[in-house]
Write a protein that binds this DNA or RNA. Structure first.
Lengths: 213, 213
DNA sequence: CAACGGCTGGCAGTTTGCTGCCACTCGCGG
DNA sequence: CCGCGAGTGGCAGCAAACTGCCAGCCGTTG
């Protein structure tokens, strides 16, 4: 049988939901996902619990910079506690969802305030996308290892970002946070790395982009 | 006659438009406005040309940082060319609209993604708000003077912001823009001032906030 | 109880950024 | 044509940030 519409582009979360939302409940083998923001999470995780049907193995990769947001970090932990495998990546990849290695959804760019998504069912293409996902999966670190790395930074990040956004000098901010200057600068360096920034200007733009200021 | 509802709070641009949009066409003496973003401009400048009826004197104060956006700068120039008096302020004030000194609209904070507006018709309160507007008006600089100040920065700002966002050192960015290091740093200092930032982290966050990166 | 690992904080050297000063250049106006 | 004003660029001094090194401390483990 000739299969039609193996590659379909939809615009906006509503259209995506209408087109492919129901398929989430039919997944049997695995759901694998790369998430960059809460925004797309909501798009691919519709109302009604996903795990309510027979539990399906899930793998999810979160963006490291997103994990600076406490609600994200909490969400990732909750997923891991509910049996999903969660990893954290420092790399930037377009958001991707794989269902049973039969269907892939890739997020595109935002145009006129609307994000487009490509829904793929072509077997060869889905296999290719799945292999790329595997590379990203292997390159990412496990949630527990990531949490250990972030143990010192995590509780301080909001206050450090506030201090930076207030324009405070490192010495002033260190005193306000009850840290030595060296340790404050250590934390700032870790924050910069988590944001993927090499300058403080970049860090400010990234933090704003992520809703951290 | 006892006037009711002299102070009303509405939530969202649609509700504001329904409540007060028609009044813009009835203004006869003056429309005065402080704008912080394109967002609120659209709210208080509904479809259908404002000046289509008898031309009403208009005074508008734009936020200096917003003027870094070429579309804003162009818009301000177009208003001035159409007879409005335009000034630029470095200060941050909540967005305000005054109609004939009889009605005032003040923008509030965004809560749950929805901005609230306070519509005021109480004569005493409107007079008070109008007097505050006059203070802001007098403290602002005329558009022409502002444009002269921005003459060197204006054409370079997009590329400087790109260079900063790329994490380039000042020396690297200066060479890329064909400027000396001293001049590049002069332009960066002007950009920081226009953004109202005292640190590069702040500048990055502000630039992102304004849609400049 | 001792050893080890990891974190902190002080110090220091280096890098990058910030701004004042001044000589020079160029364009404009009288 | 000359004088003046404004901008540029080089230099320099200072401030702020970045990161390595090392001693000390604390908690954990054997």
């Amino acid at each position: 049988m000739h299969q039609v519409d193996q590659i379909v582009v939809v615009r906006g979360e509503r259209e995506l939901h209408e087109r492919a939302g129901h398929l989430f409940g039919t997944a049997r083998e695995e759901i694998a996902c790369i998430a960059n923001s809460l925004f797309t999470w909501q798009a691919t995780h519709p109302s009604g619990p996903l795990g309510a049907s027979a539990p399906v193995p899930k793998r999810k990769v979160f963006r490291r910079s997103a994990m600076l947001d406490p609600s994200w970090a909490q969400h990732a932990r909750a997923m891991a506690d509910n049996g999903a495998e969660v990893r954290i990546t420092s790399h930037e990849a377009n958001e991707t969802v794989l269902l049973d290695r039969r269907l892939a959804i890739l997020a595109g760019d935002v145009v006129d305030g609307v994000r487009s998504f490509t829904v793929v069912t072509s077997p060869d293409l889905v296999r290719g996308i799945a292999s790329l996902f595997e590379v990203a999966w292997r390159a990412a670190v496990e949630l527990d290892a990531h949490d250990r790395q972030m143990a010192e930074l995590r509780p301080l990040a909001p206050r450090i970002i506030s201090a930076l956004n207030a324009g405070w000098k490192d010495e002033t901010a260190a005193r306000a946070l009850g840290l030595s200057l060296r340790t404050y600068r250590r934390r700032v360096a870790e924050l910069m790395e988590a944001l993927g920034a090499t300058s403080r200007f970049q860090a400010g733009a990234r933090a704003k982009d992520l809703g951290l200021v």
